[in-house]
Simulated scan of single mutants.
Amino acid sequence: MKDIKTYEPMIMSIIKKLGIMYHIDEYMQIGRIAVYNAQTTFNKEKANCTLDQFIYTRIYQRMIDAIRKESNYQNYHTTTEDELMETYSSSDYYDDLLFEDLKKHLNEREQYVFTYLLHGYKLSEIAIMLGVSNSTAKNIRMSIRNKLKQTLQT
Rank of each mutant, 00 (worst) to 15 (best):
L18I: 07
L18Y: 08
L18P: 03
G19W: 11
G19Q: 10
G19H: 05
I20H: 01
M21A: 12
Y22L: 05
Y22D: 01
Y22Q: 11
Y22W: 01
H23C: 06
I24T: 12
I24Q: 02
I24V: 10
E26F: 14
Y27F: 14
Y27M: 13
Y27G: 02
M28V: 09
Q29K: 14
I30Q: 01
I30V: 15
G31Q: 08
G31E: 02
G31R: 06
I33D: 15
I33G: 10
I33T: 15
A34K: 00
A34Y: 02
V35C: 08
Y36S: 09
Y36V: 13
N37R: 15
N37S: 05
A38F: 01
A38T: 01
A38N: 01
T40G: 05
T40P: 07
T41E: 14
T41F: 01
F42R: 08
N43K: 05
K44Q: 09
E45R: 14
E45T: 07
K46C: 05
K46G: 07
A47I: 03
A47T: 04
A47G: 08
N48D: 10
N48C: 03
C49N: 15
C49Q: 13
T50P: 06
T50K: 04
F54S: 01
Y56K: 13
R58G: 15
R58I: 11
R58D: 15
R58P: 04
I59N: 01
Y60I: 04
R62P: 00
M63S: 03
M63L: 05
I64L: 03
D65V: 04
D65K: 04
D65W: 06
A66N: 07
A66W: 06
R68T: 07
K69L: 10
K69Y: 08
K69A: 04
E70V: 05
E70D: 11
S71E: 12
Y73Q: 14
Y73D: 14
Y73K: 15
Q74I: 11
N75G: 07
Y76S: 08
H77G: 03
T78N: 12
T78Q: 15
T78L: 07
T78A: 13
T78P: 03
T79M: 14
T79D: 09
T80D: 02
T80G: 02
E81I: 10
D82W: 10
D82A: 10
D82I: 12
E83T: 09
L84V: 08
L84S: 05
L84I: 13
M85H: 12
M85F: 15
M85T: 12
M85Y: 13
E86D: 02
T87P: 00
S89F: 12
S89H: 14
S89A: 15
S89R: 13
S90D: 10
S90Q: 07
S91G: 11
Y93M: 09
Y94F: 13
D95T: 12
D95N: 12
D96H: 05
L97N: 10
F99M: 12
F99E: 05
F99C: 07
D101Q: 14
L102F: 10
L102W: 07
K103N: 04
K103H: 14
K104E: 07
H105L: 01
H105Y: 05
N107D: 13
N107I: 03
E108G: 02
E108K: 10
R109A: 02
E110H: 10
E110P: 08
E110F: 09
Q111Y: 05
Q111A: 09
Y112S: 09
F114G: 04
T115L: 11
T115N: 12
T115W: 00
Y116R: 13
